[in-house]
């Protein structure tokens, strides 16, 4: 296999791991604050309307405290 082919293969593997990592993070909800910020920017025109986004700490506090509890699973 040529070196560029190898590099390509390696790149694919790295990419696969990154995809898996992204998936796990999304599944756990780890990116929620970023999603919230993106959304806030959109809703409040980047804070130009006087609203300020929650701090990361405050966001997580509220998110977890107000999360619905799921009762399924067998």
């Amino acid at each position: 296999m040529s070196s560029s082919g190898l590099a390509h293969c390696f790149g694919q593997v790295i990419r696969g791991f990154k995809t898996a990592w992204w998936y796990v993070c999304e599944l756990l909800g780890a990116n929620a604050y970023q999603h919230y910020l993106d959304r806030f920017t959109l809703d409040h025109h980047n804070g130009e309307d006087g609203h300020q986004p929650m701090s990361e700490k405050e966001f997580w506090r509220r998110r977890i405290d107000e999360a619905p509890v799921e009762g399924g699973c067998c």
Binding site: Q12, R15, G16, K18, T19, E26, H35, D38, L42
Partner: peptide, 30 residues
Amino acid sequence: PFTGRLGASRMKKCLEDGPLDTTQGSDRMA
């Protein structure tokens, strides 16, 4: 991957900024 419309806006931003970071969980990697 995106969550709701915020993803849409982020995506738009990415498109303006140049090539998208496709490693971010995009499927059909090939």
